[in-house]
């Protein structure tokens, strides 16, 4: 069991998972978002190789309307 902070809220997952697995689990199209792990941007090509560990802080962002 791991516990992470995802977009400001605590989420629990049964096993450790990669960024790619996390996005798939959340049904998020990776082309439309960017991911930050512990305040560092994760390049898209590393989504499958980087694993999320217990207590990690993950941010998933996209573009919204703004001036």
């Amino acid at each position: 069991m791991i516990e992470i902070q995802l977009n400001g809220q605590i989420h629990k997952f049964e096993t450790s998972l990669s960024i790619e697995q996390l996005l798939n689990k959340l049904s998020i199209n990776k082309k439309k978002v960017a991911v930050e792990l512990n305040k560092s941007v994760v390049p898209k090509q590393k989504y499958s190789s980087i694993k999320i560990a217990n207590q990690d802080v993950v941010e998933i962002v996209t573009f919204i309307g703004g001036g």
């Binding site: 995802l6 977009n7 400001g8 809220q9 989420h11 959340l26 998020i28 978002v33 960017a34 941010e59 998933i60 962002v61 996209t62 573009f63 919204i64 309307g65 703004g66 001036g67």
Partner: peptide
């Protein structure tokens, strides 16, 4: 212009 914000999880 666009803003960058958290995805609705």
């Amino acid at each position: 212009t666009v803003a960058v914000r958290r995805v609705n999880i």
